[in-house]
Design a protein around this nucleic acid. Structure first.
Lengths: 210, 210
DNA sequence: TAGATTGTTAATCGATTAACAATC
DNA sequence: TAGATTGTTAATCGATTAACAATC
């Protein structure tokens, strides 16, 4: 398969560019240079240009990029245009927080429902979305063609939940549980590793105080 | 300043090793080889050895590392031993989810309180911890020597909140708001960029379906 | 035209991996 | 001893940065 491969680091930065540009709001200039974006985000201008070169949106010498075009191109590339359905597995505090986070809608991610093995939670609602029992998961995913699963169960339940997701046709799992999951090759596991972030913070303090 | 510098990538992996080793629980063998750890975490054995070489804990040919020693060394290096106080700024859903997440205590992070500018929230409690009004922030941080701030306010309020944190002596900010913050050199900003993670997921699906 | 800014090629840097001697 | 596994040096890989020609 000859897939247009974009470097991982670039992919991680594209949403940052988009968020910055959108954040300019009313004050946004019609044109913006790589230097201006770089300055604001504390990056190198060449890096910005190289990243943006992956988009079907080219800058012009002397004027830079057309801001509106750039935003469109980023949104389209990142798939914010068309809505992707997702489900949450584990309706604890974190799961509920993510369900209630309206920001995802701007990213084209629509959370349909949550699933939880705790019978006290199921058939309740959260942020206007149903919390269902786990045995309803496979059918719902199949019927609605859901391919993204957000995993917010405790570490001990994560692998089992992952297996259920995979068996239900999920192709990408956003894993908030602090465990390494194993899944077949075609399934992407994106770990949101809070402990790793925390390590960076903690180390910084340790170094400050020797 | 001649600070023992550990590569960022290594630092990010150390908590992953720790979490894996602790996850072995009862079944943990007395000794464990870099190859075994690598296999489980889908890494290279040399990478594991190089990472572990930053710890004051050396392996032995033929037997590997003493599991218990390794866990101790990781915990100590990552500062899980001694408790660090932190505060949450922004007591919305995400802020409350983080306050209620008991996992942080295992990482040596103790959340003392949250602060919110919404008067309806302040003087309430969440997860047994007080939610206070923003004007109480500087004093509390100074009195209790708090150096870590967890920022979970909306994007539009983030820079202002960041400024208050910096002025109150905070040295490391864990930023969940989707904005690039500016802070003086000595202050570390660790961005938890959900949009970037989402981009990876979304791209994976886009490639699967052409 | 002169100057600013792009896009690209080459050089540098940092991190990963391969090779291998040391050693238990 | 022979074999497994470490720790380290050298080679490779990928990403960032520097240099610069193209161009509006």
């Amino acid at each position: 398969m000859a897939i247009s491969s974009i470097p991982r680091q670039t992919l991680l930065r594209l949403p940052v560019y988009l968020s910055y540009l959108k954040g300019l709001g009313e004050n946004a200039p019609a044109n913006i240079s790589s230097a201006a974006v770089a300055e604001a985000l504390n990056l190198g201008p060449v890096q910005v240009r190289k990243d943006l070169a992956y988009l079907p949106c080219t800058g012009r010498p002397k004027t830079g990029y057309v801001t509106a075009e750039l935003i469109k191109a980023l949104e389209s590339f990142l798939g914010y245009d068309d809505v992707t359905n997702a489900i949450v597995v584990g309706a604890g505090k974190l799961g509920q927080a993510l369900m209630g986070y309206s920001g995802f809608e701007h990213y084209g991610l629509h959370i349909l429902a949550a699933f939880d093995s705790n019978p006290e939670l199921s058939n309740q609602k959260c942020a206007g979305k149903p919390i269902l029992s786990m045995d309803k998961l496979p059918d719902l995913c199949a019927r609605l063609g859901v391919h993204i699963g957000i995993l917010t169960v405790p570490a001990s339940a994560a692998q089992q939940a992952c297996d259920i997701l995979v068996a239900s046709g999920i192709l990408a799992i956003w894993n908030f549980a602090p465990v390494r999951l194993s899944a077949p090759p075609g399934v992407l596991i994106q770990n949101e590793n809070m402990a790793s972030s925390l390590a960076v913070l903690s180390r910084h303090l340790a170094e400050r105080f020797q």
